[in-house]
Amino acid sequence: AASPSAAAPIDIAEAMRSEDLIPMLADEKIREALMKHLPEGNTIPKTEAELKETIHSPQFKQATQAFSHALSTGQLGPVLKQFGISDAACEAATKGDVAGFAKAMQEDAKKNADKPAAEDSMETN
């Protein structure tokens, strides 16, 4: 019972509070990417207003809490592979290492962003 993740549990749902997410929606690209994942059907039109309402909803909050629990208990590791998450991030997730997972994800994103501009990046040694 002495694993580092057990000593310092991080609730990742707390990183996805509506007050953190709503400002992100100012970015059209992010808005479009998230809108795609609203429930199917006509009940909830794919609009910015509905996206905001959903992010404020108790159902969404519950989902982030379920995700958080699954992530910190290591259950998400194998599942995240299906979402194109890198091996390093999935490995951290399997250990329930939330901080490690976030770090790996952010490093992957940086690598991907650097790729097209590889010539003037530091990788040209």
Partner: peptide
């Protein structure tokens, strides 16, 4: 909501 959470 799993796909949305991962996207976020």
């Amino acid at each position: 909501f799993m796909p949305m959470v991962v996207e976020i």
